[in-house]
Amino acid sequence: MALRVVCYLNQFFGQLGGEEKAGVGPQVVDGAVGAARAVQQALGDAGTVVATVICGDNYAAEQAERAVAEMVPLVAAARPDLVVAGPAFLAGRYGVACGALCAAVQAQLEVPVVTGMHAENPGVELYRRQVHVVQTGAEATRMLDDVKRLVALGLKLARREAIGAPVAEGYFARGLTRNVVAGAVAADRAVAMLLDKLAARPFASEVPRPAFPHVPAPRLIKTLEGATIALVTDGGLVPRGNPDGIEALNATRYGAYSIEGKTGLDAAQYDNPHRGYDTTWVKQDPHRLVPVDVARELERSGAIGKLHETVYSTVGVATTLAHSARMGAEIAEKLRAAGVDAVILTST
C-alpha cells in the first residue's frame, strides 16, 4: 500500500516567493508543490505526497512555538504515514523550523519524520538527538540525490524497519548507544586498525573523539593583591559523612563547603569518596588536594586580596561530559555571583 506523505517547505522551496514572502504564515496545499515534487519523484510507487505544508522563514523563526502549534493540525489533517521536512541545506531559519516541526509531529502525532540539513545548519545541533536529520550538501545543487537519501531513510522509518548506524544511513548521530555483534574481537580490530594506520590506509576509529570547543581565556582584570580567589577541585574532597552524597564515580553532584574561619583543613573532619585514585594520602592531609593552608597564608600576607570562603568539590572520574559541563557552568555562575575573580582548580 502506498504511504501517505506530507512535506514541509519554506516559502522559497514552496514557490511562494523569496525573502519578501518570509513573513507569511502556515498554509497547506494539496499534493506536491515546489521541492516536494522531488520527494514524490524519489518515492516513486512507494508513496504519495498528499499535502505540502509551507511557512515563511521569518514567521517560523520569530514565533516558533505559535508556528509549530499552527502547523501540527495541518499535518494531522492530511493523515500522513510519514513527514518529510526540507531538506533545508545550510539555511538556518529553515533548518530550525524543519527540526521543530518534526520534533512536534513525532511527539504529538506519533508519525515518523525525517529532515535533512548541512552539518553546519544550527538545526542539526538543536534537533539531531530528537529526530533523524539526514546530512545534505550546503546548497540545493544536488537536491534530488539528497532527497533520495531522505526518502530512503523515511521509508524505513515509516515501515518500522531496523535503522542502521548513522554513518551507514547518512544521518547525524543521535547520541544513542546500541549493542551490536562485531565480526571480530576488539584486539583483532585494533591490530587491523593499527596496520591500516602504519600502511597509510584509510581507517575509522570506533570511538569518535568528543569535540571540545575552544574557550577564550578570560583575562584577570584586577591585580592579584585585589582579587578574590576561589579553590575548586574534582578530586573528591567532602566533609566527613559526605552530606551531599557525591557519587564515587560518574558524579552528577557537587558540594559547596565553607572554610570560613579556618586556616587549614583538619583531616578528621574530611573524607573522600573518589574511586578513581588511591585517596590514602589526601585523606591523611586534605591540603594535598585543596591548599587552604597556603592560600590563607597568601591572603594574610596580602599576596592575594581574599580567599573565597566556599570550596566547591566534585568527583571527576568517569564523569560524563554533559554532567561536567553542567556542574562547571553552575559552579562558575555561583562564583561569579559571589564576586570571585579567579579560580584555582586542583585536579587528580
Partner: peptide, 16 residues
C-alpha cells in the same frame, strides 16, 4: 581546552 595549566606533584597528591 583548559587554558592555564600548572603541572602538580602527582595524581594521588597533586599538592603534596
Amino acid at each position: 581546552g583548559a587554558n592555564r595549566i600548572v603541572p602538580a606533584a602527582g595524581i594521588i597528591h597533586p599538592l603534596g
